[in-house]
């Protein structure tokens, strides 16, 4: 097992319930701790997996403070209740302001990031280069393809510089090249700061688990209405985390099979 310690609590969900006309989420309890490794700047990456319609997007809304739960609470950084704006959230459909050009949209986010002060423009150009959008900075969202929109949306939330970044389906709609780039980018982000915490919802289990340290599986239990976290897999314990070529290894594939069987 890679040497590491789990330190202070970064995010804590306590007894979160969400009910519309029926129960959607119930008894959600988990806690994400700051993972430190000697000699390495290491953030946290959590993958959240579940069937379509199970409540992943709703859980994201609650975690990010956009939606208050029916009961229970989510706290970050020493028991402060989370509020909208604390986290970067990339939603499934990549909404952008239709009246802003790509560059303006990115600038709005960069302006919110105090760490970028004075370097907003360069940083945007740098990101655009990495995501192959340099030629598209002056276009409006309507003029972008679905995958380009998605990348702009990801860039926008990364530029904002929150420590918590929630990504709802960040890999759908990306071609093989872009997918590798996006995975690489997320890894970089997670390594950029000790406190960076990424929570990824994805149906692309292999790719998201490969860069994660923890997996949560959201599912129903027999006889109970509403989904909850059915299983938590600590990938560090299984020695599957933080390894570049993990995807080819047998143990990794076995874990993937285990996850799939659980859905």
């Amino acid at each position: 097992m890679t040497q590491h310690t789990k330190e202070e609590v970064l995010l804590q969900a306590t007894d979160v319930q969400l009910t519309f006309d029926r129960s959607i989420l119930r008894d959600i309890n988990f806690c994400i701790r700051n993972i430190t490794r000697p000699g390495v700047l290491q953030g946290q990456v959590v993958t959240l997996i579940g069937r379509s319609g199970i409540g992943k997007t709703q859980l994201f809304k609650i975690l990010s403070g956009l939606q208050s739960p029916t009961s229970g609470q989510v706290t970050i950084n020493n028991n402060k209740p989370v509020k909208a704006g604390d986290m970067g959230v990339i939603f499934q459909n990549y909404y952008l302001f239709e009246w802003r050009t790509v560059h303006q949209s990115l600038m709005l986010a960069a302006k919110k990031n105090k760490a970028l002060f004075g370097r907003e423009k360069q940083t945007i150009e740098q990101y655009a280069e990495q995501f192959q959008l340099t030629g598209h900075l002056n276009l409006y969202p309507q003029q972008l393809s679905g995958g380009q929109r998605q990348r702009v949306s990801i860039m926008q939330q990364l530029l904002k510089g929150s420590n918590f970044i929630l990504l709802d389906e960040p890999f759908s709609g990306l071609d093989v090249c872009m997918l590798d780039k996006a995975v690489e980018m997320l890894l970089q982000v997670s390594l950029s700061d000790e406190l960076k915490t990424l929570i990824i919802v994805s149906h692309d289990i292999e790719n998201s688990v490969a860069i994660s340290d923890t997996v949560y599986i959201l599912g129903n239990e027999p006889g109970k209405e509403g989904a909850t976290i059915k299983k938590e897999i600590d990938l560090i314990e299984r020695d599957l985390a933080w390894q570049k070529h993990i995807k080819q290894e047998r143990r990794f594939m076995e874990t993937i099979e285990e996850i799939k069987a659980c859905l």
Binding site: S64, L66, A84, D86, M87, Y95, F97, Q157
Partner: peptide
Amino acid sequence: NPQEYELCKTLGY
């Protein structure tokens, strides 16, 4: 579209 408001909120407006 409610997502316009949500995007504003995530940007911390």
